[in-house]
Design a protein around this nucleic acid. Structure first.
Lengths: 243, 243
DNA sequence: GAGTGGTCTAGACCACTAG
DNA sequence: TAGTGGTCTAGACCACTCT
């Protein structure tokens, strides 16, 4: 009767929020429904109110619930599509999270010496070797995302041996670095696609959303640079923002 | 000597983080510099460590500092340009925050009956009157953002009387609603601008970044719909994301 | 091992919402 | 006024980093 609901592998607040996410996904909690108040949740789950608050704060950030002062916490009814402007998940992780049917084609994979522009982005010494990747992502068999990546191989030794058809880049990088990616910057712009991009993405016209991305390690050193082109009719980029 | 550093108008954690932001802006804290540890900050500022942690967590989210487990908290050296994909600030507020030199031209302002598409976006009854706004924002005298807004006037009585040359839309809405905007959704896409948009924004080519935005009140009712076109060479949209 | 942040607790009091 | 979340505290113990 007085058994702890959670184990010791993850912080309680993560386990609590995961458990609530599951309840939402499984329909045990429905849209607009009010959760128990914080004191009750704390009692039920046998953790302190502070821990419950931290869980709810996470769920708020991620758009699962909305908390209103004086009223309570409610399940959100508008789950957003792709939070790549809000969270540093890779496109692959994002598509998995959304449960999309997708496929990756590796168009080019080779080790090259960086040219001047990439050089600059990666703040690297002369003649550094980088892995150059060109990949196409299809969502529901429709070409939707074209990705170019540059990764210095001295930071990710052996990364050139991966077949990226079934493994994501972030996963491969974190394995070969022996360290997690710390953070990243994404910059969004619109431009006219050249003939090649237009053809590969099968664009209805030549406007394309471009995302420039840089990833950094714990020491704030750049470890990856990307240019990503998206067909925004196939793949929505959305932010759900609290004011 | 034992005076409290902060007053009672705002929560301590906000005052603490504002004060640290100021130190960064004024150069008292420089890029890469390590802040005092949490226990010391708590002692110096006469608040509890929990309050300090909440402040630092805010500063982390907003990209001012970076906290590393076991090492400390450091001033970030890459302050991002525009966080409109990460925070629900209006474009006006964002430009003010960045200290940009900008100007607003109201191209159209009239009260109309909504047509079917806007109808749908705003989930409104037939014949509802909305304020229709078309505005152009110039940054450093360069046309950079073209905004179209639809706001139901029964929600914001009197909003049609504002002159939007020197007042922002969010500000006017919150004044006339007598309530704060609660949250919003922004969706990013790229498209080919028509001749008119191309001309007004003085685009070098016809690709333009489009943001569809909906704002909601506390009851999750839509209170505004926008379509915003940006020249991304003049106005950067960037997200700084922790992994 | 010393220093630092990360998690968690138990309790107090304040501020907002709604009947 | 009762119910709910928001802020703040003081203290304990754990996990990571560096030397």
């Amino acid at each position: 009767m007085s058994e702890r609901k959670f184990d010791g592998y993850e912080p309680f607040y993560i386990q609590v929020s995961d458990s609530i996410k599951n309840d939402i996904r499984e329909g045990k909690l429905i849209r607009g429904e009010k959760l128990s108040n914080e004191a009750e949740l704390a009692k039920e789950l046998e953790v302190s109110r502070g821990t419950i608050r931290k869980s709810l704060s996470l769920l708020n950030e991620e758009g699962y619930v909305e908390t209103v002062h004086g009223k309570g916490t409610f399940v959100r009814n508008d789950k957003i599509s792709s939070p790549i402007a809000q969270q540093f998940v890779s496109f692959e992780e994002d598509m998995r999270n959304q449960g999309l049917n997708f496929e990756t084609k590796v168009l080019t994979k080779k080790v090259i010496s960086v040219d001047d522009s990439i050089h600059y982005e990666l703040k690297m010494a002369d003649n550094t070797k980088v892995l150059y990747l060109e990949r196409l992502r299809l969502v529901n068999n429709e070409p939707s995302i074209l990705l170019y990546n540059w990764i210095p191989i001295d930071r990710c030794p052996g990364i050139e041996k991966y077949d990226f058809t079934n493994i994501g880049l972030f996963e491969a990088m974190e394995e070969t670095m022996g360290e997690k990616i710390n953070h990243g910057i994404r910059e969004f712009s619109a431009l006219n696609a050249d003939d090649y991009i237009q053809k590969v993405l099968n664009l209805p016209n030549d406007a394309v959303l471009k995302i420039n991305q840089k990833s950094f390690d714990d020491n704030n050193e750049p470890i990856e640079y990307s240019e990503v082109y998206l067909r925004t009719d196939n793949y929505q980029v959305t932010s759900l923002l609290q004011r």
